[in-house]
């Protein structure tokens, strides 16, 4: 096995079995905030236990090990095809070792060949930068929470949402309302304002690479993030939709340019089992640092 493949396997193992520190802290904070003796509190306690147990046993946090999304920052001239081959080999091995469930199904035939390899699986996003380091971030995105994601085209008549920030706020909060607890809340929202339909969703997912306590450098978006987070937590949906104070753990929003003719707001919902880790790699493929 190449050094790169071994490093990527370790990245997959850790991502599938351990939530990053920022998410763990947010869950513990919310446990403090919930009223004692409620079913919301007991749901969060079980979630907390599950996080501990998965890490201790080095077994998947959730049995749905999700869509496999790699985000790679690479130096100019890096061989992306060789990287892709190593990533595929690492995914196959992680599946054989049980860090990933056999989770990828041919959409036409319904056949699951048990490899997690196929069109769209895994997905790799490459991005060149003028630095010698390779940074690899991995998100495992569950299906239940993916199903409650939503894309709105503004203006939106029924919600009375116009093409402005108040309109964006209305549709994002509508997505939270529609999701209830069905995406295994408490959840984290990744939102993109603008773009074409597919780019917009893609950028919404990239927001999951940000840590939960970070603040948006754009004051208008920062305000919207805090506002949606606070408002959502006043809706009383709560963990698993049981009612309670913790509906969301975080909201991350970006804006990209759009055509004059369209105005999309894309909302991706991440479950509490927020699996995201990252590493920097030496040219040899060895892990030099964990990023989260």
């Amino acid at each position: 096995m190449s050094q790169l493949q071994a490093s990527l396997l370790d990245l997959i193992r850790r991502t599938s079995t351990e939530v990053p520190d920022d998410v763990n802290r947010a869950i513990l904070d919310s446990l403090e905030r919930e009223k004692k003796g409620t079913i919301a509190e007991s749901a969060l306690k079980i979630i907390d236990q599950n996080i501990g147990l998965a890490k201790q046993k080095s077994q998947p946090l959730c049995q749905d090990t999700g869509s496999i999304l790699f985000y790679v920052d690479c130096p100019v001239g890096m061989d992306q095809l060789a990287f892709e081959e190593a990533a595929h080999a690492a995914v196959l091995e992680a599946t054989q070792k049980g860090f990933l469930r056999q989770n990828s199904v041919n959409s036409l035939t319904g056949v699951n060949d048990g490899t997690n390899l196929g069109p769209g699986s895994p997905t790799l996003h490459f991005h060149q930068h003028r630095s010698e380091t390779i940074a690899v971030r991995l998100v495992l995105k569950g299906g239940g929470c993916e199903n409650v994601g939503a894309q709105y085209s503004l203006p939106h008549g029924p919600l009375k949402a116009g093409r402005d920030l108040p309109g964006c706020r209305k549709v994002i909060l509508d997505a939270v309302l529609q999701a209830q607890g069905k995406g295994c809340g408490p959840g984290i929202l990744g939102v993109c304002i603008g773009g074409d339909r597919s780019t917009s969703y893609e950028f919404s997912k990239k927001q999951f690479l940000r840590t939960l306590p970070d603040r948006n450098p754009d004051p208008a978006l920062d305000e919207l993030e805090q506002d949606v987070l606070n408002t959502a937590n006043e809706l009383g949906i709560g963990p698993m939709g049981f009612g309670g104070k913790t509906t969301l753990l975080g909201v991350k929003i970006c804006a990209i340019n759009r055509l004059p003719a369209s105005f999309f707001v894309s909302v991706s919902y991440m479950c509490w089992a927020f699996r995201r880790h990252g590493v920097t790699l030496a040219p040899s493929g060895e892990i030099t640092q964990w990023l989260y």
Binding site: I47, A54, P60
Partner: peptide, 10 residues
């Protein structure tokens, strides 16, 4: 009866 979604290990 609603079980805790995602709590596969527990």
């Amino acid at each position: 009866l609603h079980a805790i979604g995602g709590a596969a290990q527990v």
